[in-house]
Design a binder for these strands. Structure first.
Length: 462
RNA sequence: GACCCCUUCGUCUAGCGGUUAGGACACAUCCCUUUCACGGAUGCGACACGAGUUCGAUUCUCGUAGGGGUCGCCA
């Protein structure tokens, strides 16, 4: 952790054009190489995120490569889930599926000739041997190998006593470690940022790079994301799948921001930081080396922060699918936008909106039973509601301040504080005991529906 | 079993020999308030343990314990 770290990259060229005495700075090339398992895991997403930040920070290339050598698990749907998840997070790739590039193909399933050629080179160098059943193995160099890791520092592995590693199965298909290294070499990957679970195998990869006559990339092994219980995040854990954030109404920017802070602390004021700031501050050497536990509470807090920044139109656009999914029919966009606006500081996820605003959109909204019981308990309540109805009836203009004043006047006329009347009206107009200001609700639903709802509340009470 | 990484409030973390150990989320209380929230204020709360180095360890070294990971003809 405290071992010296080398300078990450040469400083960017200050002047345009080639300089006779300096080599052009190498273009940073990083990659995210998921295997299509059917969903994008939050840990993988953060790995992709760090790679993306690094590429963008240095003006380099972010490459997406699909490691689909496992035929059984490789389906279009599984592949699509990865792409969708990355796109939702805003992690655009410069080379890869649907983007093209000069180093393709970007599916391992289509790169067999490249692997065959690389294997031939290893064979020519005398670094392989074939077993009786046809499997091909790699002769380890069996020397001490030091991984110079941006996050973990120098990690030295003693000469191995493990059996030589298999490169190719008898059926001709290749093993992960081999194709991974060949692809990184062929694609000119300069930095490998990946989960710490790969650290223990990195010496094998370096051994392979050396045998191939290539320089190994610079490594940065980032800590794993653990579930609240402290063990590795699995499919079943809340928040494990990126799709679950989409479904519960997270905003991509919020998830992006939260994931950045799991293991990395940008040296900036505050924690809510936009992408441009995150990009400009990112440095893998500043990544923490201990695993981090996932905290849905904090992730939701970030989402609430980002939700509040949405203007009414953007909020409606974001929430509309969730309203529709809950059976709410939006016929008046300005009403819907205002209704959402009125409760947006009360929710942290878009999926929570329907339960807060459903009564703005229909008259057959449910009523909270215990609240109804409370209202029935006081015999003077119906008269208070009648007084409010009368005050509303007399109003000629239906603005929020006018409605508010009418409520206060009605309370005064009945000899009670506004605070005694408000809860009654809230219940009558929304069926709920919580929500936006009463005057806001009345104003938004309009005079006619306000009066109608008071009458039906009186009917229920009496 | 071997090897590798890790260990500061419940959680994410700042700290890089001398600090009243700081912040964020969560939690509690108070203020604001027609409800629920937001916001503001305050509080609760941590250096895993044991040696060593040093005038002095959260910080450096070693050990122990605990957690995680890797040792596939999975990726």
């Amino acid at each position: 952790m405290h071992s010296p770290r080398f300078v990450l990259t040469p400083p960017p060229a200050t002047a345009a054009g080639p300089h006779p005495h300096h080599q052009a700075p190498t273009m940073i090339r990083v990659r995210f190489a998921p295997s299509p398992t059917g969903y994008l895991h939050v840990g993988g997403a953060r790995t992709a995120l760090f790679n993306w930040l690094f590429a963008r920070h240095h003006g380099g290339k972010f490459i997406l490569r699909i490691e689909d050598t496992d035929e059984a698990r490789n389906t279009d749907a599984a592949r699509q889930a990865i792409l969708d998840g990355l796109r939702w997070l805003g992690l655009d790739w410069d080379e890869g599926p649907e983007a093209g590039g000069d180093h393709g193909p970007y599916f391992q399933s289509q790169r067999k000739p490249i692997y065959d050629a690389a294997l031939a080179r290893l064979e020519a160098a005398g670094r392989t041997y074939t077993e009786e059943n046809g499997a091909v193995r790699f002769k380890f160099s069996r020397t001490a190998i030091t991984v110079r890791d941006l996050v973990c520092g120098d990690v030295t592995f003693a000469p191995t006593e493990e059996p030589d590693m298999t490169l190719r199965r008898p059926d001709g298909s290749y093993i992960f470690h081999f194709v991974n290294v060949v692809d990184d070499a062929e694609m000119g990957i300069t930095h490998v940022i990946r989960g710490e679970d790969h650290l223990s195998n990195t010496w094998k990869h370096m051994d392979l790079f050396a045998a191939l006559g290539k320089d190994a990339p610079v490594y940065a092994h980032i800590p794993l994301i653990l579930n609240p219980g402290g063990s590795k995040m699995s499919k079943r854990d809340e928040g494990a799948s990126i799709q679950s954030y989409v479904d519960s109404g997270f905003l991509p920017d919020a998830v992006f921001n939260y994931l950045c802070l799991l293991g990395w602390t940008p040296r900036a004021e505050g924690e809510k930081l936009d992408r441009a700031t995150l990009v400009s501050l990112f440095d893998p050497a500043g990544v923490h080396s201990a695993n981090a536990r996932f905290d849905m509470h904090k992730c939701a807090w970030f989402n609430a922060q980002y939700l509040r920044e949405l203007d009414p139109a953007a909020l409606l656009a974001a929430a509309r699918p969730f309203l529709e999914k809950a059976g709410i029919i939006v016929t008046d966009d300005s009403l819907a936008a205002a209704a959402l606006q009125s409760v947006k500081e009360k929710v942290s996820r878009l999926a929570e909106f329907p339960e807060w605003v459903h009564y703005f959109f229909r008259e057959d909204y449910p009523t909270e039973e215990d609240a109804l019981a409370k209202l029935r308990a006081k015999p003077e309540n119906p008269a208070l509601l009648q007084a409010a109805a009368a005050a509303f009836q007399a109003l000629t203009e239906w603005t929020e301040p006018a409605v508010h004043t009418a409520i206060e006047d009605a309370a005064k006329g009945a000899g009670v504080k506004p605070g005694a009347l408000m809860p009654l009206l809230r219940f009558a107009l929304s069926g709920q005991t919580r929500g936006p200001g009463v005057a806001t609700i009345a104003h938004l639903i309009g005079k006619e529906r306000t009066l109608g709802r008071i009458q039906s509340a009186l009917a229920k009470m009496g």
